[in-house]
Amino acid sequence: MRILNAIHSQSIGGVEQVFRDYTQALTMRGHEVALLISKNGNENYSATKIFKLKNFAQIFDFLKLLLIVISYRPKVIICHSRRLMKWMRLLKFFLPQKIFNYHTIAVNHGITFDTSLHCDFIISINRQIKDLVDKHFDQKKSFVVNNAIDISQKYQQKKFNNICPTIGIYGRIEPRKGFDVMLLAGKILQEKNQDFRFKIGGFEVSENYNLTTLKNLALQQQIIDKCNFVGVVKDKLDFFLDVDILCVPSREEPFGLVIIEGFLYSTLVIASDTDGAKLLINDQQNGLLFKNESSQDLVDKILSIINNPQNYNQICQQAYKVLQDRYSLESLSQNLQNILAKINND
């Protein structure tokens, strides 16, 4: 099947990684997958065909989209960004589906789903989002497909440093990711005379909340000497080499791709009890959950594993098994194939 996998204004992050994973998962099934991306500097992709929008003026980008669909004639257009989902309504007007014979699929990466209703089918990354969508959309055309990851690493037992653990965090530098929750936890750990190191990675999306903001917060908590700010994490394997605990203190997280990356690199994950984290982590079994926004509860969970180091590798091993069983690219590929079969028969 000829598929146009589309994203707009792509950047480093979870949505962009899922976009890449869909490309790989669909290609695994023998589909011809072309990419539609923005010409914005983040263009390191591999595909037989790559179409680029200039990301300058919406009207010109939309006109180019029309030309791409006319020339490439995809059977399915998969939209990973809200702007593209909105354009699908106009696309159907200018290029009637009965003539051009295509279907549109929206991938909901978060709880804001209104623009996805412009597409013919909707994929949500968890059950909670699907339940919200189904109140406004045909349930037979609404699906749940969990995110996945390429299992490129074998499980490798780590030697847990419970004397001075390195606690890692990375992601979009913004308030909802909870960097401040972790930094306050660092202050509490220091007051309890527990030694530790923070390894902090991330990429900036705002001038008002950035790496400098995090450094100032670390100064305020008087733990700047315990923080290693590593910037954008491009090499995940290198990042995880000396990380004992991955902290995911997000205030909201519909899935939490970073959590299964922790599973992949045999690292214990402690996450706030968001919908995404509760989907992935069975508390005390394959990771630890703490009360959302509670730095004190985060500290309690960190100390619980420090004081019981014998549980560390057992939890990490179980997390890796969960990853293999539920969140592999093969699983994603099969789920997408099942949906395409239903669409083809629609």
Rank of each mutant, 00 (worst) to 15 (best):
Q310Y: 13
I224C: 15
S71F: 14
Q222M: 09
N147K: 10
R251G: 07
K75S: 10
Q153D: 00
K49N: 10
Y102W: 09
F290D: 08
R251I: 14
K158I: 00
I270S: 07
N44Q: 06
T166H: 05
E191H: 12
S116F: 01
Q220C: 06
D195G: 00
Q222E: 13
R172Q: 06
D242A: 05
L289H: 15
R251V: 15
F160W: 00
T212E: 10
F240P: 04
K215R: 10
M28P: 01
R172A: 09
M182W: 02
N228W: 11
I151D: 05
S142V: 15
G287E: 13
L237E: 06
V15K: 06
S81L: 12
L132S: 04
D275A: 12
C164G: 07
F198A: 00
R20M: 14
D180W: 12
D238C: 04
N55L: 14
Q220I: 08
N101G: 11
F196K: 03
K158Q: 09
K159L: 07
Q139G: 08
G262S: 13
M85F: 08
I188T: 07
S124P: 03
H136Q: 10
K64W: 10
Q157L: 04
R172L: 11
N126I: 03
L217P: 04
I70Q: 11
G171L: 15
L183D: 04
V243L: 03
A106I: 11
N161A: 01
Y102V: 09
K54T: 01
L257Y: 00
K75I: 05
L95Q: 14
V15Q: 15
K141H: 13
F137T: 12
E43Y: 09
Y102M: 07
L35C: 13
G171Q: 09
I306S: 01
N44L: 14
L241P: 12
Q318T: 11
I70A: 09
F93K: 08
I315L: 09
V243R: 06
Q334T: 15
K321E: 01
R73V: 01
Q284A: 01
V205N: 09
I12M: 10
S46N: 12
L65R: 00
D238N: 08
R83A: 03
G287I: 14
H109Y: 07
Q296N: 07
K135N: 08
Q310D: 02
L67A: 12
K141P: 00
R73L: 15
S81I: 04
K159S: 14
I12D: 03
L217H: 07
R20H: 03
L65C: 01
Y170W: 15
Q314M: 11
I169W: 06
I50E: 08
A148N: 11
V69G: 05
A148L: 15
N344C: 05
F263M: 06
S142H: 05
V205G: 01
N282D: 04
